[in-house]
Design a binder for these strands. Structure first.
Lengths: 253, 253
DNA sequence: GGATTGCTTTGCGGTGGATCAATAGAGTGT
DNA sequence: ACACTCTATTGATCCACCGCAAAGCAATCC
């Protein structure tokens, strides 16, 4: 069976159709640009339904579990933590979102958000009303496809996290998170080796199924082994190769 | 902000638009019926793109990781295990699928299946070519919506598994899986208290992030405590309340 | 039937990460 | 500068689960 061709006209060089950088913050479409192929007219329509909200302060919620679902959201600047409550009332962090990423798609199935999301720092978030996106999608097939892909990607990422939680050691989990953040930084043309973690150790531990203490210990050990240098939330990856070894479990010491 | 109204004409009583039971196997649309509201003409169109494949034997693959993505699949009879490979080559079970459920949606994002799926027993699987579904969705808005919902549901379920793996003990994980299977049986009008597990202990352990031995020990303990009776793969839930306690971690002994 | 193979159960010792506790540091407001 | 609070680090102990090993049991094949 023949392989399906990639979406026609898909942007390939990390620029959107406005010829903006992926991480551009002036274009309202920024978070959607990368894999999107649209006619100019369609593009204007899409742009018109995206609402640019006021900046959110650290700790402010974008939406909360159980709230009526109306929109998905795109991060334009800052960072976001998504979490849900387990039956025992404890918090479970389900993901971190950085500029150019979409969140809130777990609310579609029941017309109600299945998780909460809050800003980890002062952030700019775009609101994309889902009903209008839905209508637009029926008229613009490539947009429909794009959203199917975004949701599918979310599924894939969740499954990767499942694998991480199910099979990997504390070292591997922390290494994998750092590499993931590093890669996402690179995608935004930012430094892949030095960055600031916007979330607390507690959030990291919660996300990775570890305690704060274990996360802290792993950071200390990694520093001692020369994989990276840690200054509270400032991380500098010193040896990517070793860090990859740590992530795959093949680190010697 | 007003709450979005539910999809107009949505089936509410567990019957599809052919007035079949949810679990009907004679209707090719069975796995899609429950939440679907379509005009008769649309229904025929949808039915015409769904392909009924030959029965799969136990162990046969529906698709494999890395294969070109062309279709999603609906289970009509039997059961399916989905799994992916971790970087170290070990297997990670990401889900079990029963009649009326859809799988393969993780392949959409990269036009390539992100996981493999195989029949756990002799099974009937419908193939739904995604390109044709895509076209159809642009013409039938409620179908588009329905597929968004299915994918969103997959995300929610993955996140529930993440919570399970991250925060819960072996007892809680096993109890949760049994309750999930029980609930899915009930949805198909089958017994919620007595059923046969189609998957091996190894699969269960792999899915839940536990070893075979631990799974086996938990089954034995649950039996000793009178929560259920276990005869290899035949499970009979003896005390649902206690099992729920076990799932929430409030089991006394 | 007997042998082979694969799956499940049970026992026992080891260990990675949780838990408890104490300290140190960073951030915030006065 | 101070006190106060929140977050991070480090140490010591403990336990749930893993890993190995052996035995029991079921299905399949010759």
């Amino acid at each position: 069976m023949a392989e399906p061709s990639p979406v026609a006209g898909e942007a390939r060089d990390g620029r959107c159709h406005h010829d903006h950088q992926v991480s551009c913050t002036s274009c309202r479409l920024a978070p959607l640009c990368l894999p999107l192929a649209l006619e100019t007219g369609d593009l204007e329509q899409l742009e018109s339904i995206i609402q640019r909200g006021r900046p959110l302060q650290k700790g402010e919620h974008i939406y909360q579990e159980g709230q009526a679902f109306t929109s998905v959201y795109a991060v334009r600047a800052g960072s976001v933590k998504a979490y849900r409550y387990a039956d025992d009332g404890s918090e479970q962090v389900t993901g971190f979102y950085f500029p150019g990423e979409i969140l809130g798609m777990d609310g579609i199935s029941r017309n109600r958000h299945a998780s909460s999301a809050l800003a980890l720092e002062t952030s700019a978030i775009c609101e994309i009303p889902f009903e209008r996106l839905n209508e637009l999608s029926t008229r613009i097939p490539s947009l429909q496809r794009h959203f199917f892909q975004l949701m599918s990607q979310e599924i894939t990422e969740d499954q990767e996290l499942i694998t991480l939680l199910s099979k990997h050691s504390a070292d591997q989990r922390v290494a994998a998170l750092l590499l993931s953040i590093s890669a996402r930084n690179a995608r935004r043309k930012l430094s892949a080796t030095a960055f600031r973690l916007p979330m607390s150790r507690a959030d990291i531990g919660n996300y990775l199924g570890l305690t704060v203490e274990t996360v802290s210990r792993v950071f200390s050990r990694f520093q001692k082994l020369g994989l990276l240098s840690v200054d509270s939330k400032e991380i500098a990856i010193a040896d990517v190769a070793l860090l990859r070894d740590a992530a795959s479990g093949t680190l010697s010491t």
